[in-house]
Amino acid sequence: MTRKRRSFSPEFKLEAAQLVVDQGYTIREAAEAMNVSKTTLENWIRQLKSERSGKTPASKALTPEQKRIQELEKQLRKVEQEKEIFKKGYCSLDVRLAQQFQIIKRLEGSFPAKTLCDTFEVHRSSYRYWRNRPGRLSSKELRTRHLIKTAHRLSNGSAGARSIAKIVTTMGEDLSRYRASRRMKLLGLVSSQLPKHHYRKAEQAHIAVPNVLGRCFDVKRPNQVWVGDITYVWAGKRWAYLAVVMDLYARKPVGWSLSLSPDSVLTKSALEMAYESRKQPNELLFHSDQGCQYTSIQFRQVLWRYQIKQSLSRKGNCWDNSPMERFFRSLKTEWIPETGYRSFTEAKEQITNYIVGYYSRYRPHSKNGGLSPNDKEIMYWKAYKTVAKNTCPLHKVS
Rank of each mutant, 00 (worst) to 15 (best):
L242W: 04
R143S: 10
Y275P: 02
N374A: 14
T267K: 09
I207D: 15
M379E: 14
L93W: 01
E338Q: 14
C318H: 11
H198L: 12
R153Q: 11
S259Q: 13
W256Q: 03
L154G: 05
A30S: 06
S126D: 05
R342W: 05
R162G: 08
L284C: 06
S313R: 02
E173W: 05
G316V: 03
W319M: 12
S155I: 07
L14P: 02
A17S: 10
N223Q: 05
Q280I: 00
P323A: 05
P373K: 10
Y294L: 09
A31G: 06
S158T: 14
I69H: 04
V265Q: 14
D263W: 09
D118Q: 12
A347Y: 08
K367Q: 15
N43S: 12
Q204E: 14
M324P: 08
A61I: 04
A98M: 08
S330N: 13
R6H: 09
L116D: 00
K220A: 12
R251I: 02
G214E: 02
R179H: 11
T39N: 11
K4Q: 15
T56W: 00
Q307I: 05
K348V: 06
K114Y: 11
N211A: 01
T339P: 03
I103E: 10
N390P: 02
S59A: 12
V36R: 03
W335I: 00
S191W: 05
C91Y: 11
L147H: 02
I164F: 02
F101N: 08
E121T: 03
K49Y: 00
E272T: 13
A61H: 04
C117H: 06
K140G: 04
D375V: 10
S59H: 12
Q224T: 03
V219Y: 05
K196M: 12
L187D: 07
Q310H: 05
R326S: 15
K396A: 14
R46H: 11
S163N: 14
K382I: 10
R363F: 00
R221Q: 12
S343M: 07
Q47K: 11
E283I: 01
W44M: 03
L41Q: 04
V20Y: 06
D218L: 10
F12H: 09
S37W: 00
R131F: 01
P364V: 07
T115S: 06
E65R: 15
Y25S: 04
D94W: 00
Q298K: 15
G369Y: 08
Q280T: 05
G89F: 01
T26V: 02
C392V: 13
A270C: 08
F286H: 09
R68L: 09
P222T: 01
L19C: 10
W239H: 09
K185A: 09
Y127T: 02
K55G: 00
A383H: 13
D289H: 10
F120K: 07
E108S: 14
T150E: 14
R128S: 06
K13W: 05
F101W: 04
C117D: 06
H395T: 13
V190T: 13
N353Q: 13
R131N: 04
W319C: 10
S366Y: 11
R145T: 00
L137S: 06
M273C: 05
T339E: 14
A250S: 15
Y129G: 01
S163D: 13
R131S: 01
S366I: 15
F286N: 03
F120P: 09
L76M: 09
S158W: 02
I69Q: 10
V212G: 01
P222N: 01
A243Q: 08
T169G: 03
K114S: 14
D174I: 11
P262Y: 04
P10Q: 08
C91K: 14
W130I: 05
